[in-house]
Nucleic acid binder design. Sequence first.
DNA 1: TTCTTATTCTAGCGCTTGCTCGGTTTTAGA
DNA 2: TCTAAAACCGAGCAAGCGCTAGAATAAGAA
Lengths: 193, 193
Amino acid sequence: MTLTNNSKRRKELVAIAARLFFEQGYERTTVRILAEAMGIKSGSLFHHFTDKQAILCAVIESGMQSAMQIAHEALEGVQDPQDKLLALTKAHLSTLLTDRNAHVVALYEWRSLTPESLHHLVGLRDEYESLWRSVIQECIQADVLHGEESVVRHFALGALNWTVQWYDPQGQRTPDDLALALVNLLMDRTHFN
Amino acid sequence: MTLTNNSKRRKELVAIAARLFFEQGYERTTVRILAEAMGIKSGSLFHHFTDKQAILCAVIESGMQSAMQIAHEALEGVQDPQDKLLALTKAHLSTLLTDRNAHVVALYEWRSLTPESLHHLVGLRDEYESLWRSVIQECIQADVLHGEESVVRHFALGALNWTVQWYDPQGQRTPDDLALALVNLLMDRTHFN
DNA sequence: TTCTTATTCTAGCGCTTGCTCGGTTTTAGA
DNA sequence: TCTAAAACCGAGCAAGCGCTAGAATAAGAA
């Protein structure tokens, strides 16, 4: 379910907006700056979006939907709890660090959303987090992870989301390396390499 | 070293600004809003600060300095690497969650700083992170923590900093409980309770 | 072609923004 | 009580903001 239409042109514009919001922040990116980057005049923007805020919402929504899809694909056919955790972690980092723009915007700029947009997106986020909830729960029951589920989940997602602050895509470490490092750190004994 | 003066009145204003920046974000908090909350007119603000941006810088700086001080106090007289890690973690969470405003602003709004302010604050941050660097290094050498130092440190600080997104001060968990949970999660076997 | 719909442009309105400046009041120490 | 510094006010400027409305153009179906 989307809030408004989803034309091809609109998606192009959303991708450009994502980059600009990521680079300079939502509030500092004016509609004129957006329009210029899109090759149109500022007035034309409001043919595609009702609001400036609606652009932000579309950016965040696109990021969340792709994250959800990749996560589902990653979990397909995996049975072992630890394998699930690793797969989910890899999926999370891979969307986070490749489709970086939209996700960073989501983490930073949700305060500028209207209550309606926020409610819509919180619903999507909860859907995504419930994937994590069940996988971590399985790991705890399988005794490969210890602690309260919600605390462990928040710590894990925090560690992952924080990577956007320091990870260098040009460096020698791949997202998968990082995922492995985190899972090994969280679990009692090293199981993967 | 501070960028400008540090009068008593100024500190009061900084605390008020921290709250407002935290609640509504830097860009959305206008100088008029700031001034009203401080009980003065917007023009008077610029007697204390050269810029709006200078207010932001002062807010972040105050948070960092208090974090640094608390961390140093926490480490005083502690010898065992694991004890150091726990102490540092507790200190970090305690500043983060009690002096919440300034820290959240630091995490979210650094993009609005001028290059000069940013450079100044990055220096302070590096000083603080080097505390973490040495403690984690000690833990790895003592074989109670495994992995690359920089990766472990970033994961740990990420998990901690993310708490501002979900931790409920009204809930039953204390910051110290959380600190314990994280350290136990990171280390191979449970050492504390 | 002709009709329809999607997209863009031009021009600008009404409002808010950060910030300035000359003058006044308040405060604190000698 | 006098004085100098610190704090504040009032009025407003120049620039930029999100957004609108009506006309022009491009594209696609009939």
